[in-house]
Simulated assay, not measured.
Amino acid sequence: MTIRRAERSDRARLVQIWEHSVRATHDFLGEADIAELLPQVRDVYLDAVEVWVYEDADAVAGFIGLAGAQVEMLFLDPLLRGRGIGTRLLDHARALHGALTVDVNEQNPQAHGFYRRYGFVDTGRSETDAQGRHFPLIHMAFLPQ
């Protein structure tokens, strides 16, 4: 198991993980939403954040994207969920930044529950996402003891 900075050669795998994960967990998104978001993730969002990948047996199994202490994205290969990969990526982010924040889609109760189990607490709510779409967000924070 290795956590390392993402490289340009990881891009296709990161986009694949993002798409497979979104299809498995974001039931509120339709095909048109995914088709609209995919090129943005590939061409904009992955370049806008510091991306760390979890690699196991020379294969990328998940990644976390950080903008400072804000977790902007955390996606895992859906076939590998439940193996502690997300927790290890958050542990890595905490080692880098200490306190962390994240915005979670309200319609994604699995992610909200995951962050709450990790120790994040709800700090607020927005009716729309950052692009103004009606996908409410729950704002969360993890503050080290």
Rank of each mutant, 00 (worst) to 15 (best):
D33W: 13
I34H: 02
I34D: 06
I34P: 00
I34K: 03
A35D: 15
A35L: 15
A35K: 15
E36G: 13
E36Y: 14
L37Q: 13
L38N: 13
L38M: 13
P39Q: 14
Q40H: 08
Q40M: 12
V41W: 10
R42G: 05
R42D: 11
D43A: 09
D43C: 04
D43W: 05
V44H: 12
Y45S: 09
L46I: 06
D47G: 09
D47S: 10
A48P: 05
V49I: 13
V51R: 01
V51M: 02
V51Y: 04
W52L: 06
V53K: 03
V53G: 03
V53Q: 00
Y54N: 04
E55L: 09
E55P: 08
D56A: 09
D56P: 01
D56C: 02
A57D: 14
A57T: 08
D58E: 15
A59E: 11
A59P: 00
V60D: 10
V60N: 08
A61D: 11
G62T: 09
F63N: 03
F63E: 01
F63L: 06
I64E: 05
G65V: 05
G65Q: 08
L66H: 00
A67T: 02
A67L: 11
A67W: 00
G68P: 05
A69Y: 12
A69M: 08
A69I: 04
A69W: 12
Q70V: 12
V71E: 06
V71W: 03
V71N: 01
V71P: 02
E72I: 07
M73R: 07
L74T: 08
L74G: 03
L74S: 09
F75Q: 10
F75G: 07
